[in-house]
């Protein structure tokens, strides 16, 4: 049973001073699936991602990734297990160049002494070049990340995840705050990178959701409201009621 799913979230609960941000939530993600989580503000979408990647500690339930219990692991161990996370606001290292941003995300030399004696060999440079092409930043490699536009920073952070090559990629509103042109380019980028891996995306743009989702999970007040194909949830009267509107 568990082998069918790459990620099994069961009875997940977190309460902040009695307020249950996520309440008894269960869902399962299959390999190569693109799962989109939608829901009104405050539904607990970002908190679910925080719980999976170890940023917030759960009060109850289990999160199993390839048989490993993520709730017992530290953030960096979860990353090494193969889970990558992109934050809602672009979080890149502003004082470092695009190249250095990608270099730090390269999955080698992660121990203290590994980092001191890390060598930028050709394999590292080639990989960074390859990723830079994917995220449209080849010409900006030597530029400080602080000077990138908002959209470029989002791409850079996606690139930093790609270089880790995670089996499960979690993206929190990857197209928020982007111009129409950037949004189109990002959709194209995401469509390319969600092949060959499982992805969980939080997104509000319903057109975008319909474009990429294998299945959709709708959250409301920390609880599962509806789950299924895009058609299914769009026609679910409960979802229409609280989220999509009439």
């Amino acid at each position: 049973m568990s082998e069918r799913f790459i990620l099994s979230v069961e009875d997940l609960t977190v309460s902040f001073d009695g307020f249950k941000a996520v309440d008894d939530l269960s869902f399962y993600v299959e390999p190569n699936e693109c799962r989109v989580i939608i829901g009104p503000n405050g539904a607990g979408k970002t908190t679910v991602l925080d719980l999976i990647c170890g940023r917030t500690k759960a009060t109850g339930g289990t999160v199993k990734f390839k048989g490993m219990n993520l709730l017992d692991m530290r953030e960096d161990q979860i990353v090494h297990a193969g889970v990558g996370r992109k934050f809602q606001t672009p979080s890149v290292y502003e004082d470092l160049s695009v190249f250095e941003n990608l270099e730090l995300s390269y999955p080698k030399g992660h121990g203290v002494f590994g980092a001191v004696f890390f060598k930028q060999d050709q394999a590292v440079k080639d990989r960074i070049q390859e990723i830079a092409e994917t995220i449209f930043l080849t010409d900006q490699l030597d530029e400080k990340a602080a000077y990138l536009s908002h959209g470029q920073k989002q791409w850079l952070e996606i690139g930093m995840l790609l270089i880790q090559d995670p089996e499960l990629l979690m993206l929190d509103e990857p197209v928020a705050g982007m111009s129409v042109a950037e949004r189109k380019k990002t959709a194209e980028l995401l469509n390319r990178i969600i092949q060959d891996r499982s992805v969980i995306v939080i997104e509000h743009d319903m057109g975008f959701v319909a474009d990429i989702a294998t299945r959709v999970t709708v959250l409301h007040r920390g609880e599962l409201l509806s789950e299924g194909s895009m058609d299914h949830v769009q026609n679910d009267p409960k979802v229409v009621e609280v989220y999509l509107g009439h």
Partner: peptide, 11 residues
């Protein structure tokens, strides 16, 4: 600059 990002890059 971004302690959390470093953590979620696996350090």
């Amino acid at each position: 600059d971004q302690e959390d990002r470093v953590r979620f890059s696996g350090y």
